[in-house]
Design a protein around this nucleic acid. Structure first.
Length: 646
RNA sequence: GCCGACGUAGCUCAGGGGUAGAGCGUUUCCUUGGUAAGGAAGAGGCCACGAGUUCGAAUCUCGUCGUUGGCUCCA
């Protein structure tokens, strides 16, 4: 007998060789029907794996993340079988589950896969699923495994197997299909009722752009057809919140081929919104002791050679600007920090002067790869809400924590409650990627982790994601389609002060190196506004939205009164205009609704007589006829309640 | 940069070897309207750009540019 500990803490005895499935049956028939994967002593096992020893068992159904992952990974086997049948001679590689679905990477040889091929792949895959084939794991010796894939000329699987220990190699079979796989499958293919191929893309083998590009087939699957339909509807809804679509509809920004790829043009409404965001942060930063500075858009190439940016990114950047005078070279600035270092160098500092906090909305230019450009989230010219804090070693902790507070204040003021923090540290296996003293890296990494802990941030540590000059703490937010983007960032840097020979005089009358903290709570104005658009669906907070109210005269007869109302609104700094077009009120309301204007102020005979306005909120709520004074108070109260000061 | 898809009026899109269509928007006129589309008429396109095939190309082929889903990259 073996003792099995269940998640609720109960320990039950089962005969040796019981499987998760048979154990599930003893708990309840319903559970047995729904269990699709299992973890034994924290290792993923099949539901049919005989358990030989005491241990803890967790059973997963579709309702759990683990269950979904197993379900999707299993579907990748089914899709791989379909691909293998439909495209003879393809070489299989890997097929993991991802956050929403799964993918399978295959080498198609000369063959090309496009969207037109999806239906036939889906059709064959679902046929296979309906065959209710059991997923069966079996152990294979390293020699046999290698022999199989060598006979198929599958160099990918051979490479994978060569990195595995003999005795740990398993294959998974279902129907006529066999695949090298470490396991974790649903009991049989029949549980998969709906399969959708979502997209096809190139993906480098092992994520290395120097290796061969494979064809990656993305898909998703569900235990019920209805769930697939709902998922696809969700995707459609998400597309409506795409910032590129909303930015166009709300006339916030545009791009022009004549200006250039990835160079956003801010339209009046977008520029006004951005200006307001900047004012909001400037106010908070003033309280937090920052001083604004202004630096030019270009700098001598030498400046970036000194900072190390040129060596690291020079070849892939906008190339140097030459001047009529020989030998002079300037770079469009890709970073503000070197300029700020020189501002620091303008005069000597005592330890009593520190920290110095220099802030600037600095526009930088980076030659991002063309395939990377994406709306406003990845552009070639953008404005950072940048600042550099120069402080003594014993001020770093406090300064870092203060910046975390400011970043959280910014995110929460704009309704981002679901951000994640990411601590990016070095990849020790790749020391060439970084500059600076190892000891300082250790201090800086630890300081960031301590600060994240101290502030109770929900954070993950990512190895190899650090900047080349130092570790960082980033605030990550998801877009409408679930893609992660870095917004705010805080970085500790011991290197640039060294390179720019920054000093301050300590209490000991000796010169010391300050430590630099790079930080940007928004990150880039462009990306931040893009994410804000997707989060709010264009319904920005009242204090930020370009147009707060629109006055809608019922007919031309009431235009004069409408103008009078508008003037009063403007006197009260409420951003508004009159829709005096020769249209019906219904039409004007419809358009104001579509333009997401928070308040529609209808004025006609009744209002003119009583000196009021009839207020309709975006969405349809009728606030009735009130005085302009009451309306102004309403707007101001609402703004005060949503916009707390730092 | 790489792989796949796409590019038709200001916007959203249909069409497709014989010289261009709808809805919305815009303009003019009629209408003077009460909480999500009042009516009529008109203007508006070198069908991204460049080559090629063809009697003829917006349509087919190739290339370029741009957009897009991924990969790689992200100071």
């Amino acid at each position: 007998m073996i003792k099995i500990t269940l998640p609720d803490g109960t320990i039950k005895e089962y005969s040796k060789g019981s499987t998760p499935m048979t154990i599930a049956k003893t708990i309840s028939e319903g559970l047995a029907r729904n269990v699709i994967s299992a973890k034994f002593n924290d290792t993923t096992v099949e539901t049919t794996t005989p358990l030989q020893e005491d241990g803890s068992l967790v059973l997963h159904t579709w309702g759990s993340t683990e269950g979904k992952k197993t379900f999707w990974h299993s579907t990748s086997h089914i899709v791989a079988q379909a691909l293998e049948e439909l495209y003879p001679g393809v070489k299989l590689t890997i097929g993991p589950a991802v956050e929403n679905g799964f993918y399978y990477d295959i080498d198609l040889g000369e063959q090309v896969l496009s969207e037109n091929d999806f239906p036939k792949i889906e059709k064959r895959a679902i046929e296979i699923a309906r065959g209710k084939h059991d997923f069966k794991m079996r152990s294979v010796s390293k020699a046999d495994a290698l022999a199989l894939y060598k006979s198929q000329n599958n160099e990918y699987k051979v490479e994978l197997i060569e990195n595995l220990e003999d005795g740990t190699i398993t294959f998974c079979d279902h129907d006529t299909f066999t695949d090298l796989c470490r396991g974790g499958h649903i009991p049989n293919t029949g549980i998969v009722k709906a399969i959708k191929i979502l997209s096809v893309a190139g993906a480098y083998w092992r994520g290395d752009e120097n290796k061969k590009q494979l064809t990656r087939v993305y898909g998703i699957s569900f235990p019920k057809q209805k769930e697939l339909t709902e998922y696809l509807e969700l995707l459609e809804e998400a597309k409506k919140r795409d910032h590129r679509k909303l930015g166009k509809e709300l006339e916030l920004f545009t791009f022009s081929q004549k200006v250039g790829q990835g160079l956003p043009l801010w339209l009046p409404k977008g520029a006004a919104l951005r200006e307001r965001l900047e004012q909001f942060l400037k106010k908070a930063q003033k309280k937090a002791g920052y001083e604004m500075v202004i630096t030019p858009h270009i700098g001598q190439k030498e400046l970036y050679v000194t900072s190390g940016h040129y060596e690291k990114y020079g070849a892939d950047s906008f190339q140097p600007i030459n001047t009529p005078k020989d030998g002079e070279e300037f770079l469009l600035k890709p970073m503000n920090c070197p300029h700020h270092c020189e501002i620091y160098n303008n005069k000597p500092y005592s330890y009593k002067d520190l920290p110095k906090r220099f802030a600037e909305f600095g526009t930088v230019y980076r030659y991002e790869q063309s395939g990377e450009l994406h709306g406003l989230t990845r552009v070639r010219g953008f404005t950072q809400d940048d600042a550099h804090i120069f402080c003594t070693p014993d001020q770093v902790d406090q300064e870092f924590k203060n910046v975390i507070d400011l970043s959280i204040y910014v995110l929460q003021s704009l309704g981002f409650d679901d951000f994640k923090a990411q601590v990016s540290i070095r990849d020790m296996d790749n020391p060439d990627k970084y500059i600076g003293d190892v000891k300082n890296w250790e201090i800086a990494e630890q300081a960031i982790i301590n600060a994240a802990e101290d502030k109770g941030l929900d954070y993950v540590i990512k190895k190899g994601e650090a900047a080349f000059y130092g570790p960082k703490l980033d605030f990550m937010v998801k877009d409408a389609l679930g893609r992660n983007w870095q917004l705010g960032t805080i970085q500790v840097d011991y290197t640039l002060p060294e390179r720019f020979d920054l000093t301050y005089k300590g209490a000991d009358n000796q010169l010391h190196r300050p430590i630099m903290i790079h930080r940007a709570p928004f990150g880039s104005m462009e990306r931040f506004i893009a994410l804000l658009l997707e989060h709010t669906g264009g319904n920005f907070p009242l204090w930020l939205i370009p147009e707060q109210a629109i006055v809608l005269p019922v007919s031309e007869k009431h235009e004069k009164y409408a103008e009078k109302v508008l003037e009063l609104l403007k006197n009260n700094e409420i951003r508004s205009r009159v829709d005096s077009r020769n249209e019906t009120v219904g039409k004007k309301i419809r358009e104001a609704e579509m333009n997401k204007i928070p308040f529609m102020l209808i004025v006609g005979e009744n209002e003119e007589e009583a000196n009021t306005i009839s207020v309709r909120r975006h969405g349809g709520e009728d606030l009735g006829a009130i005085s302009i004074n009451d309306f102004t108070n309403l707007v101001n109260t609402e703004i005060k309640s949503t916009l707390k000061s730092f």
